[in-house]
Simulated assay, not measured.
Amino acid sequence: MSDKEELYCIPSRYRKTENLHIVFWLVKDLCWVMLWKPLGLIMIIPTLGAALLITWQTRAIKSELLHNVAVVFWITANAYWMLSEFYSTDDSLRYYAVIPFSLGIITIGYYYLGLFSKKVR
């Protein structure tokens, strides 16, 4: 590591929230694949809640904020897709998940295009 390289450091309480968030997300997706509808539905709340908390906690760091906003969109799309498979007989409803997925891609694109344009300048 060079002397000029910036060190990335987050408080351990934030890291614990991020690690717990991964557990919530894995349990939610396990419920989805195993068709455990009630638990899958319940797991949306802590999974999305943890993502929102992490996003709020990192709001002062633009790169973290935008990546975490994209994660919130991803989980929203993922949860909607799961619910459409669980509770709808209309397969075409799952395609609406493209909306939050696209918003996540736009968020990340905004960050990386902005970063790229800064390097060019």
Rank of each mutant, 00 (worst) to 15 (best):
M82H: 05
I45F: 11
R15C: 11
I61C: 04
L39S: 14
W36E: 10
K119G: 06
L93V: 09
I99Y: 12
T58V: 02
E85P: 01
L48S: 04
S12I: 11
W56K: 08
A79D: 02
F101A: 08
T58S: 09
W74F: 15
L35S: 12
V69E: 09
F116D: 04
Y95T: 13
I106V: 15
A70Q: 05
L35V: 00
R121M: 05
Y110G: 04
A79G: 02
K4P: 00
L20Q: 12
M1I: 12
G40E: 02
V98C: 07
Y14N: 13
V33F: 14
V98Q: 08
V33N: 06
A70H: 06
L48T: 00
L20R: 15
T55G: 01
S84T: 15
P100K: 07
I99V: 15
C9Q: 10
M82N: 14
A77L: 00
V27Q: 08
L48V: 03
S2N: 15
L66R: 04
A79N: 02
G109K: 02
W56Y: 13
L83E: 14
P100S: 04
W32G: 03
F116M: 10
L113A: 14
V23W: 07
K16H: 11
L52E: 10
I61V: 14
A51T: 09
F24Q: 00
G114C: 04
Y111F: 15
S84Q: 14
V23A: 10
W56P: 00
I45N: 01
L26W: 11
A97V: 14
R59Y: 07
A79F: 01
L103R: 03
A70Y: 09
L26F: 11
W36S: 12
S117I: 12
L66C: 05
W56S: 04
L65C: 07
